[in-house]
């Protein structure tokens, strides 16, 4: 039982990381009906930006300025940088193709993804780099009964949940959020309302990418590393989470992410890590067979 609960905790922490990235897939898909395949790599770039700030401000395991300030700067630079990167990708790679065949932006997205991975690998580092978390956040391990989690893992989980609630409020409680949803549902009708659709799309990319950047920071503080390939697998998992939750649906992406993390953890813990992904994708197929629109998605007929 203890092991089960421990694997559940592991899964929730990993799942909250999936969820943060899955939100980006779902936001962008919701607006443009396109898969931003490069989103996982935006997360990777965010992690590298955070690692870069930390490398500049931490020497010999000691922060040059107060650790809290370093972490704050990491957050600002990673979120801002990833956000601007997302906006740039949209502007350069996707906007010119907005009215093209649906396959065209997907292929461009794969190209952007490969470009980002290669760029970081060649210009930054082919090997994993260190995020000096020892100097930045307390390395406390929390114990509850027989269960343990590093403080940074709990931090990841809590901040991810807070961000998701904030995003949910932004999309469902603000005027701009309504405009985003209106654009997602009927782009031309949204322009009839005087909504500047290009701006809505840019803001969507910024928000989605900034969240991925934040996921990169949280990951760095949790596991103290960043490498150029880290966005690939995570991107696929996050995308899977978004599909399980119902792509385009924000709450679906959150639940889908947490669910996928837990599923993976339990499958690895109690069945086999060698076939872990097999079970995860089996779950995806099962969900899609029973509910093709995902757990929280709109029934497909509704889209007509």
């Amino acid at each position: 039982m203890g092991t089960f609960l421990q694997q559940l905790i592991n899964g929730l922490e990993l799942g909250s990381l999936y969820a943060l990235v899955a939100l980006g897939y779902t936001l962008i898909y919701g607006i443009l009906e396109m898969l931003n395949f490069a989103h996982g790599d935006v997360y990777m770039v965010g992690a590298f930006l955070a690692a870069g700030v930390a490398a500049l401000l931490v020497h010999n395991e000691l922060a040059v300025i107060p650790a809290g300030l370093v972490v704050g700067l990491m957050v600002v630079v990673a979120m801002g940088g990833a956000g601007l990167l997302g906006v740039g990708i949209e502007r350069v790679a996707y906007r010119p193709l907005r009215n093209a065949n649906r396959l065209a932006p997907l292929i461009t997205a794969i190209g952007v993804s490969l470009f980002l991975e290669s760029a970081v690998q060649v210009w930054v580092s082919p090997a994993p780099v260190l995020v000096p978390s020892n100097a930045l956040v307390p390395q406390t391990v929390l114990h509850l009964g027989g269960l343990t989690t590093p403080l940074t893992g709990l931090m990841l989980f809590v901040i991810a949940i807070v961000l998701m609630i904030a995003l949910d409020a932004f999309v469902f409680r603000t005027r701009f959020g309504s405009a985003m949803r209106a654009t997602a549902q009927d782009r031309e009708a949204a322009t009839f309302m005087g909504i500047d659709v290009d701006r809505v799309i840019l803001v969507t990319f910024f928000v989605a990418s900034a969240l991925a950047g934040m996921a990169g920071v949280l990951f760095g503080l949790w596991h103290a590393t960043a490498d150029f390939f880290m966005g690939y697998l995570l991107g696929i998992k996050a995308f899977t989470a978004a599909v399980i939750g119902g792509i385009g649906n924000i709450r679906g992406a959150m639940i889908g992410g947490l669910l996928l993390g837990v599923l993976e953890s339990l499958a690895g813990g109690f069945i086999s890590t060698q076939f872990q992904d097999t079970f995860v994708f089996l779950a995806l197929i099962t969900v899609l067979l029973i509910r093709p629109q995902g757990l929280f998605g709109q029934p497909l007929t509704d889209r007509a």
Binding site: D186, E188, A189, M193
Partner: peptide
Amino acid sequence: PEARRIFPRLTVLENLMMGAFI
């Protein structure tokens, strides 16, 4: 617009507020 083009998954109130977006 032709065929009304209301926002199907926005509430009536939200639809109206979109009209006043500018």
